[in-house]
């Protein structure tokens, strides 16, 4: 087994209505590209990304993101993955009021099925559609979403998977909150499958990439 290249593995889930851009956000985070017209996610897909969080000592975390289907058929699959999550991105489309209104049902799902300490960030995606020469009408004002997030105790940001704006920041902020909880002792390593600590004392290779850990066979 190669030395782990991270301090923590954090399991994140991305949920929200169909077609709000969940997969696109994930692909933007992991591959730095924009996924135009993706097929609906079927079941569940994963992506991982190493993020270095600034701080007194730089912390390398491996974000393992579970991108779940928004279509009705696979909603039950989505639910079964909540339990293992340390963080959750609740995504809506800023041009679709319905997708924002439905955040409440998604949040209920998360609260029912996930760990009580899961860190949630509300992400208003597709802000690029409301900018530029031919802007589309915004259906969800920033202030409204901000207030809702504050009332529900969620982090909040707006983002665009197309331009990349705010995407990494969304994941980083949620990860920082999770880490703060971990350090505060809220996540018990044995109990919460969403957070994994790398082996104590394991060296952190300088040129670490995810490829390096692939050799446990």
């Amino acid at each position: 087994m190669a030395s782990p290249a991270w301090h923590y593995v954090l399991k994140f889930i991305i949920t929200g209505d169909a077609a709000v851009g969940k997969s696109s956000l994930l692909v933007r985070l992991t591959d730095q590209r924009f996924l135009a017209n993706p097929d609906p996610t079927l079941g569940v897909e994963f992506g991982s990304k190493l993020l270095t969080l600034p701080g007194p000592e730089a912390t390398v975390i491996k974000l393992q993101c579970w991108d779940t289907a928004g279509t009705e058929s696979f909603r039950s699959i989505t639910r079964s993955y909540y339990r293992g999550a340390a963080g959750c991105l609740l995504v809506y489309d800023v041009t679709s009021r319905r997708s924002f209104d439905n955040i409440r049902t998604w949040l209920e799902d998360v609260r029912t099925h996930a760990d009580a300490h899961v860190s949630c960030i509300l992400v208003g995606n597709k802000v690029d559609l409301c900018q530029g020469d031919d802007p589309k009408e915004r259906a969800v004002p920033t202030e409204l979403a901000e207030q809702f997030a504050a009332e529900e105790g969620l982090l909040f940001t707006e983002a665009s998977a197309r331009s990349g704006e705010g995407v990494e920041a969304a994941f980083t902020r949620a990860a920082q909150e999770v880490l703060a909880k971990v350090r505060g002792g809220k996540f018990d390593d044995d109990r919460s499958p969403g957070v994994k600590l790398s082996k104590p004392g394991a060296a952190l290779p300088v040129d670490a990439t995810t490829r390096n850990q692939c050799c446990s066979v």
Binding site: E45, Q64, A69, I77, R211, C214, C215
Partner: peptide, 20 residues
């Protein structure tokens, strides 16, 4: 849904090539 999840676990958990 469950079948696809299982395949996804194989996809994510095991690399195509071994470099160590």
């Amino acid at each position: 849904g469950i079948l696809l999840s299982s395949l996804q676990f194989i996809h994510d958990g095991t690399p195509d090539y071994v470099c160590y």
